[in-house]
Measured scan of single mutants.
Amino acid sequence: MLEGKVKWFNSEKGFGFIEVEGQDDVFVHFSAIQGEGFKTLEEGQAVSFEIVEGNRGPQAANVTKEA
Rank of each mutant, 00 (worst) to 15 (best):
37 G>Y: 06
13 K>F: 08
60 A>C: 04
36 E>V: 09
10 N>Q: 08
24 D>C: 05
39 K>D: 04
52 V>C: 04
67 A>N: 14
60 A>G: 05
34 Q>R: 12
57 G>C: 04
24 D>S: 13
45 Q>P: 01
47 V>K: 00
3 E>P: 10
46 A>Q: 12
50 E>F: 13
1 M>V: 13
66 E>D: 14
4 G>Q: 01
23 Q>M: 12
39 K>E: 04
6 V>F: 01
28 V>A: 03
54 G>R: 08
48 S>H: 14
21 E>L: 13
3 E>A: 15
44 G>N: 07
29 H>N: 04
56 R>M: 11
38 F>Q: 08
59 Q>W: 09
17 F>P: 00
58 P>D: 05
35 G>D: 09
8 W>R: 04
50 E>N: 09
21 E>D: 13
50 E>M: 11
45 Q>Y: 07
27 F>G: 01
36 E>W: 06
49 F>L: 07
51 I>W: 06
32 A>R: 04
26 V>C: 05
11 S>H: 15
36 E>S: 11
51 I>F: 06
42 E>N: 10
5 K>P: 02
55 N>D: 13
8 W>Q: 03
36 E>F: 08
33 I>A: 02
43 E>S: 15
49 F>V: 03
47 V>E: 00
52 V>R: 11
56 R>G: 11
41 L>R: 01
13 K>H: 12
50 E>G: 09
32 A>T: 06
13 K>R: 13
3 E>H: 15
19 E>H: 14
20 V>N: 06
29 H>P: 03
53 E>N: 11
67 A>D: 09
18 I>H: 00
21 E>Y: 12
22 G>P: 03
46 A>T: 13
20 V>H: 08
18 I>D: 00
29 H>G: 03
16 G>Q: 00
12 E>Q: 14
26 V>I: 12
16 G>W: 02
53 E>Y: 14
38 F>N: 08
15 F>S: 03
19 E>N: 09
66 E>T: 15
45 Q>G: 07
38 F>C: 06
4 G>N: 01
34 Q>L: 13
49 F>P: 00
45 Q>F: 07
62 N>T: 09
61 A>S: 11
29 H>K: 03
5 K>E: 04
22 G>C: 05
14 G>Q: 03
21 E>R: 15
65 K>I: 14
40 T>R: 11
39 K>A: 07
12 E>I: 11
49 F>A: 02
42 E>G: 11
50 E>P: 01
9 F>K: 02
55 N>C: 05
45 Q>S: 09
14 G>L: 02
3 E>Q: 15
35 G>K: 06
65 K>W: 10
32 A>S: 11
67 A>L: 11
52 V>L: 10
21 E>P: 14
13 K>T: 07
40 T>W: 10
25 D>T: 06
64 T>C: 05
13 K>Q: 07
12 E>M: 12
2 L>R: 06
4 G>Y: 02
18 I>P: 00
7 K>P: 00
23 Q>F: 11
46 A>S: 13
45 Q>V: 09
55 N>A: 15
65 K>F: 12
53 E>R: 11
66 E>W: 14
59 Q>I: 11
60 A>D: 00
38 F>S: 08
58 P>Y: 10
41 L>W: 02
10 N>P: 02
54 G>Q: 08
50 E>W: 11
52 V>W: 09
27 F>C: 02
46 A>F: 11
14 G>K: 03
57 G>Q: 05
42 E>D: 11
53 E>H: 12
6 V>A: 03
35 G>F: 09
31 S>G: 07
22 G>F: 10
39 K>I: 06
1 M>T: 13
18 I>R: 00
47 V>G: 00
47 V>H: 00
36 E>Q: 10
43 E>G: 13
57 G>P: 05
46 A>H: 15
28 V>Q: 00
20 V>R: 11
30 F>H: 08
18 I>T: 00
61 A>Q: 10
8 W>M: 05
56 R>P: 09
3 E>I: 15
14 G>H: 04
34 Q>S: 11
4 G>T: 01
16 G>H: 00
6 V>P: 00
5 K>G: 03
28 V>R: 00
